[in-house]
Design a binder for these strands. Structure first.
Lengths: 340, 340
DNA sequence: CCAGTTATACTATGTTTGAGTATAAGGAGG
DNA sequence: CCTCCTTATACTCAAACATAGTATAACTGG
């Protein structure tokens, strides 16, 4: 680009690229789904829909929407920025090393998008293959709906070995505490929201295959003895699994105080259907009548007047989301004790 | 990349810069403070400490810390990413216009940092002058500790004129609703967290001077009749006021369910002092004994054993934050009714 | 018509919050 | 040294909300 060889380059001698990637979530039946770009080549892991920020994109969000449109055919509705990742991990050597050791730093802006039920409307272009995946495919330890997931026993075993392998006493205590908080042991309860914390701990400990990627030392550490432990939980391209973990954590937090689930529901639905959707996202089982009361007392839904037979039991009244409720309505209790 | 004349350029013909800016918060006495870069030239508004991402910066956060260190002499502790702004508003004409109409897009990553009480340790270098400012200087309508701020009456009046000036019926209803939610009118209560929503509404309506900046039409719209209304609330450089609004909103949300206030407190403090700090941030008065009960019941503090006389009343026991409490500990009530 | 499944109503018991009152312990001014 | 002002701390009581149920209703499939 004109003048000197590095003109207009922010990072002298380097180039700066911005990746936009989207975690597009839907709920089908009882399963939380995420849209993934899948390659037929078995060696290539799934990726999130993503692309580079281009100059014709007016805003970051517009750029994201246009990439998703191109890659999946989907037009996004609800979109929310998640986080901007820019670690040195993401500084990768340029493809043409001959060009004076150019480093290309990648800044990656992650987004969360919510769409209504996964229909067949996803495009299958010649080169790109977008598929809906159960998100627990990538995070099997996050689904507690059927009780404690079996894989956790193995992970916890490996984590205990890591704790035991600490060089000093103090270091050991710190490791112990981190595991205890992230995975809810002893007096601390499992928290559905600590998805990112858990993933990052597993990454750091080396219990997740991408931790040994591109670093030469591809041998797993001694505490990851059982080979199974590190192969469960499917890997993703680049740091997309981390972005997905961020998205799950954010969404799990948000459903507790904002009525965002309705972005994922069809126009009319049954109570239990709504409950199953929330359970799918949170990875937890909820108490039926109390959940019902919660939703009713907040005035989030109204009856459509219709009834759904064919559920295999007593027919249910169909509900719709009350449009009058602002999407980002805060909870009644402000958590701070206000004066007068 | 490479090959063509636009080698390594993400944005063909353009260059991409990343700005890092920090909202550095402290509480002194009863005032919420933010660190601002102040120019002696009266025509230049305050700015947030900020700088460009450089290639030697390993991570975005490291870049931020190094800029803050350089500009203010402060070494940051608690830091949290806020948001990445990348609107076309921020695409500004390059300094060397001769160079084939180069546009330089600015991406701006905002951070929130919390530091202990504003001490004199802020550096005064030759060129840069960092000062602690009461954050309500920039957002006078956000401080309800002394009752409804006087300026709000004027803003609401102007907003009513804007609503009335709507071309159609439906548009009018929409404007009415937005104002009602953002500013807490009718049946909706004022929410301390809707800082950004309020600022963006004022911006859109043109009640804030920066809305008419660089656009030629520097004349305020008819509904901003009273000139005073649009001059209150001090302006900041670029979109820094928006970044600050984002930071205040985030912090006000966070203090309700995470014990982050303690990042702003001295090593030991009185109960009322803690309450005043929270009140300063939230811009609201709190109920004394209920606040005390809340803090005590969560086990956030412990007595140091010492006592502080000299408060003008009965001497108070001094407290300290209980280190055992994890900083990002979630609240007990999960807001979802769990099963079994 | 019986078992299984889903829907919906209702209830008893506890915990948390909102809004106080009451009392304690200092300083300053007269 | 008594009174008023300020701050601190303890305690109370009712209303609101949450937890963990039970009970009953209404369908389907075999």
């Amino acid at each position: 680009m004109s003048t000197s060889s590095h003109s207009n380059a922010t990072l002298a001698g380097d180039s700066l690229n911005v990746d936009l990637s989207a975690v597009i979530v839907a709920v089908t039946g009882d399963e939380p789904k995420v849209l993934a770009i899948h390659s037929d080549d078995p060696g290539i892991p799934d990726a999130l829909p993503s692309g580079r920020l281009e100059s014709q994109h007016r805003t970051l969000e517009a750029g994201l929407r246009s990439w998703v449109q191109r890659q999946t055919g989907l037009t996004l509705g609800y979109v929310e920025q998640l986080y901007t990742f820019g670690d040195s991990n993401r500084i990768v050597a340029g493809t043409h090393a001959a060009e004076e050791h150019v480093l290309s730093r990648i800044l990656s802006v992650g987004y969360l998008a919510l769409v209504r039920e996964a229909r067949a409307e996803v495009m299958k272009s010649v080169t790109i293959d977008a598929v809906w995946r159960d998100w627990y495919r990538y995070f099997p330890w996050e689904d507690w709906r059927g009780g404690k997931p079996a894989i956790l026993a193995r992970l916890e075993q490996a984590l205990r070995r890591w704790v035991a392998a600490a060089p000093q006493r103090e270091e050991k205590r710190l490791r112990e505490e981190r595991v205890r908080i992230a995975f809810g042991q002893r007096d601390i309860a499992w928290s559905d929201e600590r998805v990112l914390e858990r993933y990052e701990l597993l990454y750091e400990v080396g219990l997740v295959p991408e931790a040994h990627r591109g670093l030469g030392d591809s041998a797993p550490p001694p505490w990851a003895a059982a080979r199974d432990a590190i192969t469960e939980g499917e890997i993703m391209m680049a740091d997309h699994r981390r972005v997905l973990a961020t998205a799950i954590a954010r969404l799990r937090g948000k459903i507790k105080y904002r009525p965002v689930v309705f972005e994922l529901m069809p126009p009319s639905f049954r109570f239990l259907q709504l409950q199953r959707a929330v359970e799918a996202l949170a990875g937890l089982r909820l108490h039926k009548s109390n959940f019902r009361r919660l939703v009713e007392s907040q005035g989030l839904v109204e009856e459509t007047g219709e009834v759904d037979a064919g559920t295999g039991g007593r027919p249910a009244r169909l509900l719709r989301f009350r449009r009058e409720v602002r999407l980002d309505r805060p909870v009644p209790g402000s958590r701070l004790p206000l004066a007068r």
